[in-house]
Simulated scan of single mutants.
Amino acid sequence: MTRIAVIATGGTIASTATEGGVVATRTAAAVLEGAVFDGIDIETHDLMTVGSYRMTLAHLRAISDAVASLLRRTQDPVDGIVITHGTDTMEETALLLDLVHDDERPVVLTGAQRAGDAVDGDGPRNLADAVLTAAAPQCRGLGALIVFAGRILPARGTRKVHTTALDAFRSSAGGDLGTVADGTVTVGAVPRRPAPLPRPSAAFEDIRVDLIEMYPGADDVLIGAAVSAGARGIVLAGTGIGNANPVVVAAVRDLVSADVAVVLSTRVPEGPVQGVYGDGGGADLVAAGVPTASGLPATQLRILLALWLSENKADAARVRSMIATYADMKTHNREE
């Protein structure tokens, strides 16, 4: 019999309506109530019960540690893991788990857009699909996955693209890996996955990496505030193909020489990040020593940078090499 562990962390899938708004309250057993799977034995673990908008890097590390503990278990070993999670920051947790995943067994994240007590909730279907995916032999070796609205998505490059739609997630680099329909799991592509990074240590919980978005009239105030607060890294979500302005470029140039890692992303959902424009644009940022990153959304890029900086110094050459390996479009899906 296939054994799947379900780790509950909260989120909308575990939420009910209260006078103060929708709040995560339900246990893993409650979320799974009534679900029956032929040939699959389910075990449940209640790790935390929070909305993912409240999560910190400490929460993400706790989830990573729980996954590692289950994968190390030799008595009654699991064949796959499902994590129920809020959708707001699912993309961040999924990316962390994928970066450090060194096992063939699937780790699948899912959740819901409608509360657990909604009469037309999407949680039961998503959870059933996630369990089937975690148990499917064809999903071994795919790393961490997000299963939502019948789609099987790679952790890397996947982001939430709609606030309320049931089909809320899309991959910005390579598309879906497969589908779950009528209880059948179909996989048509596999992700290109670089060697795993070390699992997060206690240092990961305290590392500060800020995400700063560019906009008309942006100056260096937020950058300076981030550095004053102790930021060891900054992800710039540039406009367009990856642009800023002369004031920001000047501020960033000082940071590069001050051992603060700066990486250039974009606020645009899809497309490459390149140093094309001068006069304060991406070409000037690249000339100042800032690497570009095209394969991950800025939210996930922040997690990658935080994990790496928690164990490494902000050496410009090594940061550039790390970005090329773990945050480049070439690391994403290829057809089987």
Rank of each mutant, 00 (worst) to 15 (best):
G282H: 00
A316I: 06
A298C: 10
G295D: 04
P246I: 07
D284V: 02
Y277A: 00
V262H: 06
E311L: 08
L264W: 04
A306Q: 06
G289F: 05
T292L: 15
D315I: 13
V268Q: 13
W308H: 06
A314L: 12
D254L: 07
G295Y: 06
G282M: 01
D315G: 09
A306F: 07
Q274Y: 13
T299K: 09
L305T: 00
S265Y: 03
D315R: 09
G240S: 06
V286G: 02
V256L: 15
A316S: 13
V248W: 04
A293S: 09
Q300D: 10
I241W: 02
R253W: 09
D254E: 10
L301E: 03
P272Q: 02
Q274R: 15
S310D: 04
T239N: 09
A261E: 15
A244Q: 05
P246D: 06
P269D: 04
K313D: 15
A287E: 12
V273P: 06
A314W: 12
A288F: 01
V249Q: 08
D259N: 15
T292S: 14
L285H: 04
I303Q: 09
Q274W: 11
V256N: 11
G295R: 07
R302D: 08
E311Y: 13
I241K: 03
P272R: 11
A250I: 15
L307W: 04
G281W: 00
V256K: 14
E270H: 07
D284Y: 01
S310V: 04
R302Y: 06
L255T: 05
I303S: 08
A306W: 05
A261M: 07
T299P: 14
A244G: 14
V262L: 03
V276D: 03
P297L: 03
S310Y: 02
S265D: 13
A306R: 05
N243L: 00
S257H: 07
T292V: 11
D254R: 12
P291H: 06
W308F: 11
T292K: 12
V286M: 06
P269M: 05
G242V: 08
Y277C: 01
D254I: 14
V249P: 04
V248I: 12
L305A: 04
S310R: 00
V290N: 09
S294F: 13
L264Y: 03
R253T: 14
T299C: 14
D284F: 00
N243Q: 02
A316Q: 14
G271F: 00
A261W: 11
G282W: 00
A314N: 06
G281V: 01
L264I: 03
S294Y: 06
G278I: 05
V252E: 08
A288W: 00
G281R: 04
L296A: 15
V286Y: 15
P246T: 14
G278A: 12
D279L: 11
N243G: 00
A314C: 11
V290C: 08
N312E: 07
A298M: 13
A258H: 15
G281E: 02
L304R: 02
T266E: 01
T239R: 09
I303E: 10
A250T: 15
L305R: 05
I241S: 10
I241F: 08
V248S: 13
V260L: 02
A314V: 05
A306K: 02
V262G: 06
V256T: 10
G275D: 03
W308C: 08
S294D: 14
P269E: 11
A298V: 08
A250Q: 14
A293W: 00
D254H: 09
L296R: 08
G282T: 01
A283C: 11
A283M: 05
R267P: 01
V276I: 14
